[in-house]
């Protein structure tokens, strides 16, 4: 039956609307029931706690036989989420999809992906390296992103002044390191970019000598 997809999606949307106890919600974006927006709150006890995360949902023509397409609308700092595009690396969105999975169960899986990053199967290699090098520093950055992009705790101090966004914190770097190379006459944003790419954090810092960084900065 050709309306099977519509019927199923309709049931799924209604299910989410009716289930007030659920931690995930699904909204329509436009007049198409096949393009939706999911959202959920960041899991407690993680750097994403207190954030509100939105996900773009596209239901393909052969749904539910092929996986729903999901990507983060809200920027997330996470090894399995592209920090640029929001693309997600999660098995059930690819080979491990099954037609008995639902939009709701998939959103809940995304929520739990935030609890348990898989740095060995990364979507964002730089973020994954950061995670592996220093989990503490990674979590600090992820928390900062949650505050800036997902309305997480601590935003009050920054309200109405986005210019105060700390680019060093956004990149998960240390101010002292950025200052040091800026003092050599390089553009601050370029310094941040290079140090981020080289994963100049934690135990990596003594391993990367200054010449290497300067070389990169001169490129």
């Amino acid at each position: 039956m050709s309306d099977a997809r519509l019927r199923r999606v309709n049931k799924e949307i209604a299910d989410c609307k009716n289930d007030k106890a659920s931690s995930v919600t699904i909204d329509l974006i436009d007049n198409s029931p096949f393009h939706l927006k999911g959202s959920f709150t960041g899991p407690e006890g993680t750097p994403y706690e207190g954030g509100h995360f939105e996900v773009d949902i596209v239901i393909p023509e052969s749904y539910p036989f092929q996986p729903v397409k999901m990507k983060f609308i809200t920027k997330v700092y996470h090894p399995n989420v592209s920090s640029a595009s929001g693309a997600i690396c999660l098995d059930i969105l690819k080979d491990a999809w099954s037609p008995v999975l639902t939009l709701k169960s998939t959103l809940i899986s995304l929520q739990s992906l935030l609890c348990s990053p898989e740095p060995n199967d990364p979507q964002d290699a730089e973020v994954a390296k950061h995670y592996m090098t220093s989990k503490t520093s990674f979590e600090e950055t992820a928390r900062y992103w949650t505050m800036i992009y997902a309305g997480g705790p601590g935003k009050e101090g920054l309200k109405g002044s986005p210019g105060l966004r700390d680019e060093v914190a956004m990149a998960g770097l240390e101010k002292a390191h950025v200052d040091k190379f800026e003092a050599l006459g390089f553009d601050r944003s370029k310094v941040i970019d290079v140090l981020r790419r080289l994963n100049y954090r934690g135990a990596n810092v003594p391993k990367i000598n200054d010449d290497r960084i300067v070389e990169e900065l001169l490129k």
Partner: peptide
């Protein structure tokens, strides 16, 4: 109970009980 509704796939069931 309704909150913890879970799909029949085993791996996901575990995940759901956590959340």
């Amino acid at each position: 109970t309704e909150k913890s509704s879970s799909p029949p796939v085993v791996e996901v069931v575990e995940v759901l009980t956590v959340s």
